[in-house]
Amino acid sequence: MPKSKKYVESSDDSSDSEPKSEKKVSKKSKRENSDVEASQSKKPKKEKKEEDNAWDLGNNRQVTVREFKGKLLIDIREMYYDKEGELKPGKKGISLNTAQWRKFVDAVADVDEAVKSMC
Rank of each mutant, 00 (worst) to 15 (best):
I76Y: 12
K69D: 05
V65I: 15
A38L: 07
K46W: 06
K24I: 06
D16Y: 15
K27Y: 09
N59C: 11
K24H: 05
S14E: 15
K28Y: 12
K83P: 05
N53L: 12
E18D: 11
Y80D: 04
L73R: 12
K43E: 04
Q62G: 02
A54F: 02
S26H: 07
S14I: 11
K23N: 05
M79Q: 03
P19L: 08
K27F: 06
K28G: 02
W55L: 15
V63D: 05
A38D: 05
S34P: 01
K43M: 04
I74T: 13
D35N: 13
S34L: 12
K48N: 11
G70K: 01
R61A: 09
N59V: 04
W55Y: 15
D35V: 09
K46P: 00
S26Y: 01
K24C: 02
Q40H: 04
N53S: 13
D35F: 07
Y81I: 02
S21R: 12
K43W: 03
E67P: 00
S34T: 10
K27V: 02
K28E: 07
K48G: 02
E18R: 14
L72K: 13
D35S: 10
L57K: 12
K45H: 04
K71M: 03
N60T: 01
R66I: 08
E50I: 09
S17Q: 14
E32P: 01
V36D: 10
S39K: 13
D75K: 07
V36H: 09
K46R: 09
K20T: 10
P44W: 05
V25R: 15
P44G: 01
T64V: 15
S29G: 01
E51Q: 14
S26C: 04
A54I: 01
V25K: 13
K30N: 14
R66Q: 11
R77W: 00
A54T: 11
A54W: 02
R61H: 13
S39T: 08
N59Q: 15
G58Q: 03
R61N: 14
R61G: 03
E67G: 03
K24Y: 08
F68L: 06
R77L: 00
S29W: 10
K46I: 07
E37V: 07
T64N: 12
E78F: 06
E78A: 07
D35A: 11
V25S: 10
P19G: 10
S26T: 03
K45A: 03
S17R: 15
K49A: 08
S34Y: 12
Y81L: 00
D75S: 11
Y80C: 01
K48D: 13
V36Q: 09
E37F: 05
S14N: 15
K30E: 12
F68P: 00
N60Q: 10
W55T: 14
D56L: 09
